[in-house]
Design a protein around this nucleic acid. Structure first.
Length: 475
DNA sequence: TTTTGAGTTGTTCGA
DNA sequence: GTCGAACAACTCAAA
């Protein structure tokens, strides 16, 4: 009897799991394995919240596997040694896993390939379209999103028959030892994001169901951080608790059955976000150096200020700019931040505080449930203007204007910055403009109950324009 | 090879 | 308050 190992990494699902499918078509017995990679666990890039989300997600997956008669095998150690040992124990003839693109994953998989006595078979599945299937006519990868997305869309839409259903039966190998899943001390199960494939599917279904589905108002609502106008799927996509192709199928279906042109355009907008995800995974695949520095290398020469005190204030949500602070506190509380807010805080860190975007990238990786090397890096480089699109020098967000535009009632600010709850609407995004009497009436003294702005936006704007200009002119 | 059109999500200023 | 133009110049993709 042929035995194969399904090596689970960031594909915590049974539906449309291409590594699992490949293993099942070539072996009678498939053993699901998760390896706690000690190198990754000790890395400062793995935040506690994301680790807790992963652990709970593994419990959910283990239950799904058991419901089908199988058993998840958990081991910890260096993947190469753990898998080699497992192969010897169970006589597996191959190991199947989804191909990943991060530099760490690529190197790890090369190590495993070298150490294993049997083949490591890497399948697709992280992206909707393979990075090497969306290329220019001359075979080179795209470096600009819009033409990339046009080419991406020339491929056939995802249809139902593209999706591999979850297998009905997984048989257990009783002889194999498994370690208990570590209990992570003192961490809540991140209530807004219950882990697991069932939850992910339910979210996707709710997002696209019916003529009044959120996907049909997504384009309009997605910029309002106090509303729930987004799919909330990012942590699930991060760990493959839902197949990206299943999300794409839902998007294509919604586009097809949209009740009107506005709804259709809105669903297209959401599909575009999935294409962005593919794009940044492809960028990291083709240009792994972006993980260490700017995509446009000339920007590595920017003279950052890198003020530790300013950075600490940004992390803590104590910058004195309410929209920024609300967002940073949402991140700390939930392990998730609304995308509009991500852009605002990223612009603020880089442009207003003149801090290296990699500091922000690192903080996000520590805090985000959905922290993914490719998407996070791409987003930060976009904000910093060091990335793949020709960065307009004027991409400097005004932290007050962003708040007024996208949180017009101040509901988002009041939710996450309670000391500003009683500040009048008029001042909610610039409370320092309150007169002393206003501050007393609102019970919020600036500089005491809430910080004064740690930088002056207009001055900071001039400063960063000069810093970027200096790089361009080679000074 | 050359040319042409275009580039996620913005801000500010002045009429 | 609203609106349109200006804000650098450059690189990329495709014809």
């Amino acid at each position: 009897m042929h035995t194969a190992i399904w090596w689970i990494r960031r594909d915590l699902r049974l539906t449309d799991n291409q590594a699992l499918t490949a293993a099942l078509t070539r072996a009678e017995q498939v053993i699901p394995v998760f390896v706690f990679d000690l190198t990754l666990l000790q890395s400062r890039h793995v935040g506690e919240k994301r680790l807790a989300f992963l652990l709970s997600g593994l419990r959910a997956l283990a239950a799904d596997i058991e419901a089908r008669g199988g058993r998840l095998i958990v081991r910890s150690g260096a993947p190469a040694q753990v898998l080699a040992s497992l192969c010897a124990e169970c006589g597996a003839s191959a190991v199947y896993a989804e191909r990943d693109v991060s530099p760490y994953a690529v190197a790890r998989d090369a190590d495993v390939t070298a150490a294993l006595p049997v083949p490591l078979v890497l399948t697709d599945g992280i992206t909707i379209r393979r990075p090497d299937k969306v290329l220019k006519d001359d075979g080179a990868p795209y470096t600009v999103f819009t033409p990339y997305s046009r080419r991406w869309r020339t491929h056939a839409p995802i249809v139902g028959s593209d999706i591999a259903p979850a297998p009905r039966d997984l048989c257990a190998e009783p002889a194999l030892a498994s370690e208990p899943l570590p209990i992570h001390p003192g961490l809540p199960l991140t209530p807004p994001f219950p882990p697991g494939e069932a939850e992910a599917k339910a979210r996707l279904a709710a997002f696209v169901k019916g003529d009044a589905a959120p996907i049909y108002t997504y384009a309009k609502q997605r910029d309002r951080p106090e509303l729930e106008g987004t799919s909330g799927l990012s942590p699930y996509l991060r760990f493959g608790m839902i197949a990206p192709r299943l999300a794409a199928l839902a998007a294509y279906t919604a586009i097809e059955s949209a009740p009107n042109a506005t709804a259709r355009a809105s669903a297209e907008t959401w599909l575009n976000e999935l294409i962005w995800r593919d794009f940044y995974l492809a960028i990291l695949h083709h240009f792994p150096y972006v993980y260490r520095g700017s995509f446009r290398r000339e920007y590595d020469a920017i003279a950052w200020g890198n003020d530790e005190m300013l950075y600490a204030a940004w992390c803590a949500g104590q910058t004195g700019y309410p929209f920024i602070d609300a967002a940073m506190r949402q991140l700390a509380a939930l392990g998730w931040m609304h995308n509009r807010a991500r852009m605002a805080v990223a612009s603020f860190l880089v442009k207003d505080l003149l801090i290296d975007w990699r500091w922000g990238e690192r903080w996000f990786m520590q805090m985000l449930l959905d922290g993914d090397p490719a998407a996070n890096n791409g987003g930060w480089q976009w904000s910093a203007g060091t990335g793949t699109d020709a960065a307009p020098y004027f991409r400097i967000f005004n932290p007050v204007a962003q708040g007024q535009k996208f949180d017009p009632t101040g509901a988002y600010v009041r939710r996450w910055v309670p000391e500003l709850r009683t500040v009048p609407d008029k001042f909610i995004h610039e409370p320092w403009r309150m007169l002393r009497s206003d501050q007393l009436r609102a019970g919020c003294i600036i500089g005491q109950d809430y910080p004064a702005p740690i930088v002056d936006h207009a001055q900071a704007r001039e400063r960063v324009l000069a810093a970027y200009k200096a790089v361009k002119s080679g000074d």
